[in-house]
């Protein structure tokens, strides 16, 4: 009897440890802006699977894209010419937890500002205006979001993205399969696991540009303003990012970078994206 009781008490112990660990969360209130000032380094959460925004270059092993260039430019604006950047590749399921637990300072990863996310993180002013669209195989019968609202249609998206919620809203009958990153979702489309892939137009145009058999259809059916996310309470860092963002727009760096990445993408409205 005593042994049994002891056993069951022991059962609780690991649970207590887990609760303790989870209870620790959000206890650090350190000022990231001041901490980073000493090392002149900002650690950015980025994407490595998203063409035009953040995609790993196989030759160099480094990620390249609009978000990456923006992160470098912002860091230099905030901490001066010889400031350094560190990049941590995140996925949609890891970026907010990593921001909350202090592993990264800020996220610049084609991330839409939404009311739900705003409850957990703070966003900068929008730096890019995207809109959700559809990617299909050329010659597909799907031409707009209306064609998706059928029972036997499967839509591919990325986990926890705004795209999933939007599809549930605009095409509730369609089945949605979710993946960890855009590379996996597009691979699934190519393997015939679904009829259309959905996410923001900028990302889809990037994929269509490199894959001739696929096209972006139906225009945009939502507004997806991208923001840079920081942890709640990091007011000073957020302020610095907003100030730097405004300066980049002012001195023409922003327009130059936008043009570098999106200037030659057919069908993409750059003016709309820049919000001008």
């Amino acid at each position: 009897m005593g042994k049994k009781l002891r056993r069951s008490l022991l059962f609780l112990l690991p649970l207590l440890i887990i609760f303790f660990l989870s209870g620790c969360s959000n206890t650090q209130e350190k000022n990231i802006y001041q901490a980073d000032k000493k090392t002149k380094t900002i650690t950015w959460g980025i994407k490595s699977d998203t063409r035009l925004f953040g995609l790993m270059n196989i030759k160099t092993g480094q990620s390249e894209g609009f978000d990456i260039d923006m992160a470098k430019a912002l860091t230099k604006k905030i901490y001066g010419k010889n400031a350094k950047v560190k990049f941590v590749t995140t996925t949609i399921t890891t970026k907010i937890p990593l921001l909350k637990n202090g592993n990264i300072d800020a996220v610049i990863a084609a991330m839409t500002i939404t009311p739900e996310r705003k409850e957990y993180v703070d966003f900068s002013t929008p730096y890019f205006n995207a809109g959700q669209s559809l990617l299909v195989k050329k010659g597909s019968s799907i031409t707009s979001i209306k064609d998706l609202n059928k029972k036997n249609i499967t839509v591919l998206a990325v986990k926890g993205s705004t795209a999933v919620a939007n599809i549930e809203k605009y095409a509730p009958k369609a089945k949605v399969l979710e993946y960890d990153d855009y590379g996996q979702a597009f691979t699934a489309l190519k393997s015939g696991q679904g009829d259309a892939m959905t996410t923001d137009n900028g990302i889809l145009y990037g994929i269509a540009k490199e894959n001739k058999g696929y096209a972006v259809v139906g225009g945009t059916f939502t507004n997806e303003p991208y923001g840079i996310a920081v942890n709640k309470g990091q007011k000073q860092l957020l302020h610095a990012i907003n100030k730097a963002l405004a300066e980049l727009k002012e001195d023409g760096t922003y327009a130059r970078l936008a043009n570098k990445w999106f200037g030659d993408v057919a069908g993409f409205n750059l003016k709309e994206a820049e919000g001008q």
Partner: peptide
Amino acid sequence: MYQGQSVASTTFQTFSAYI
């Protein structure tokens, strides 16, 4: 695991969702 990830990424309650 997939469903847990879904819950985690829609509610943002990462720890509880995975526990």
